[in-house]
Design a protein around this nucleic acid. Sequence first.
DNA 1: GGCAGCTGTCATCTT
DNA 2: CTAAGATGACAGCTG
Length: 782
Amino acid sequence: MLSLKKYLTEGLLQFTILLSLIGVRVDVDTYLTSQLPPLREIILGPSSAYTQTQFHNLRNTLDGYGVHPKSIDLDNYFTARRLLSQVRALDRFQVPTTEVNAWLVHRDPEGSVSGSQPSSGLTLESSSGLQDVTGPDNGVRESETEQGFSEDLEDLGAVAPPVSGDLTKEDIDLIDILWRQDIDLGAGREIFDYSHRQKEQDVDKDLQDGAEQDDTWSGEGAEALARNLLVDGETGESFPAQVPGGEDQTALSLEECLRLLEATCPFGENAEFPADISSITEAVPSESEPPGLQNNLLSPLLTGTDSPFDLEQQWQDLMSIMEMQAMEVNTSTNEILYSAPPGDPLSTNYSLAPNTPINQNVSLHQASLGGCSQDFSLFSPEVESLPVASGSTLLPLVPSNSTSLNSTFGSTNLAGLFFPPQLNGTANDTAGPELPDPLGGLLDEAMLDEISLMDLAIEEGFNPVQASQLEEEFDSDSGLSLDSSHSPSSLSSSEGSSSSSSSSSSSSSSSSSSSSSSSSSSSASSSFSEEGAVGYSSDSETLDLEEAEGAVGYQPEYSKFCRMSYQDPSQLSCLPYLEHVGHNHTYNMAPSALDSADLPPPSALKKGSKEKQADFLDKQMSRDEHRARAMKIPFTNDKIINLPVEEFNELLSKYQLSEAQLSLIRDIRRRGKNKMAAQNCRKRKLDTILNLERDVEDLQRDKARLLREKVEFLRSLRQMKQKVQSLYQEVFGRLRDENGRPYSPSQYALQYAGDGSVLLIPRTLADQQARRQERKPKDRRK
DNA sequence: GGCAGCTGTCATCTT
DNA sequence: CTAAGATGACAGCTG
């Protein structure tokens, strides 16, 4: 308690300084010594006994760490309040509430039907009077009062009958006394009602204007209330007439609400958080309602429809502020609290403060405003999807004759599909007077086969791509399973690889020879293509060397994703991370490695790094290279493999080689060639697959685009058909025979000639021509 | 140890 | 028919 007092004292000092800055004198000592109930309620929450008073005092205490209404001049007090609220409004929302309006809607018929109930006026004053100040802390109390409102409204609005048995006479008397205290204190009715709150937010108006606006703020509702009010002749204040019974009823309902609030909302503990929420709820309507607009005041439907949008915007703003203010709040809690869609006031309120009166406010809206459910539907995805889906569907264009629709749809007779039902009806009645379909020839069955699918896609919210994919799943016979979700990088790499691979085969020989000539010093054995796929170094058969097969070589990952020309094997062999690559593809071996492998004087090598290097270089040799070295082949495997046939034969002729050596050389050449061929082949295979994948995606895109276009064309076609049909009906209906009688649609029909003219012909002739036109496409198809 | 991927090699076919 | 290349199949190696 001492710490609390210290805290409050410091806060009071700060607030006093603030008030002094705006010209208000505050006696802090007086407040601290005489206002224990407010202090207690800060900690413990309001008690039922003090609730009536706390509606005002708590506002003061929580709002400004206590400004005793008796200790200051009221004019200064309210001026200070207004200024203070303006100061606070700098960083807070300040939007009035709709609850009063909603309440008035119920109140007015209630008063008119059941007679005067001064208690209603009392309830209004008691609760709304608390809302005359918008602030962060009194928002709690305003929420409290709003719940009181809601509860009371539920009673008044026949949601639930008033329960009056719990309240004792003492309670009622106490409430009455406390309420009259407020009246005597000068807290006139203008601070209780809605117009006053509006007035306080209006900077340019002073307090007295609010009393004048009282006459206009609620129209008949105000009059009904005014009947229950007495006006103080000295101060002009209005206060309820003392009507026994009615007042009791009000006090009962109010007390009941307060007790309920007390049980459900411990304000002292979480006063800060719901304050903002309630301030939002309170804030919603009056910014959008200019004073004096009785329609708005008396029509919560209108304000209710506007409020969700305002609320959404304000809620988003509030979210940003609260996220900054509540940095220390548990993030999980934040997630739970903020997980609700911002635009959904219902879920938002529930998730934020399930016990706060905002719930009651929502229920109030829902209970009192039938149309307000639409407000919530605006932010409800499920409900929102309904009108969208219905709006986007093509079926509303179609007559409601479902049977004819299905039949015509199945037979792909667009005329039957698009023409109005009355014509179909006449056609059915007359057994055949079908209307000519001037546009029917534009559509063939193949084109219409997907109409149902596309319609389904549209109605179900699929996009044409999805529809096409869905369709493809049905008619796909390729058996090729393509991962449509593969990354675009693979696509790009495939493109790059395709381009490079096309050049690799042609440039392999030339580039390999050039690279070998440029990089090899004595026995350059490496020859690389652009892809690293062409080149050779033979393997060794010895097991130790096989175990030690090196790491330098063709890297499939590199070739697949980078497609870079890493034909400089010296760079590769110097890359330390490549030493761990186990595969021995030594056809890419570095010439220097081969040189050192061929030339190392083993005796000269010291143990240690050089020996390791020799081992490493030994590992670089392939089996064929070891074989060649074992057989003392006088030239490198690179030359054996990559030399052209003529040069290779010349090379063989230069040396006198044994049959075993010649056989080995041919095998080396064969294997080397085949190895490169195999690498190229695999690379080509991969490129082919990737290209096919890309082609499939391109085709899918094209198909989706074409389907979209087709849907658009069909849509416009339907519209055109409708226009044509309406014109047909109009023209046909105006036609008269020589006797001035209209032509029967069962006997005559209009036919469009090729030159644009329209002829009136008998039905039988029109039917014959129509059948003839139907046969023509079929014959063509055959 | 089994498995997947990569690579080399062989057999076979094509050009 | 031969050489070169392409390709399927298989085995070995590695992670």
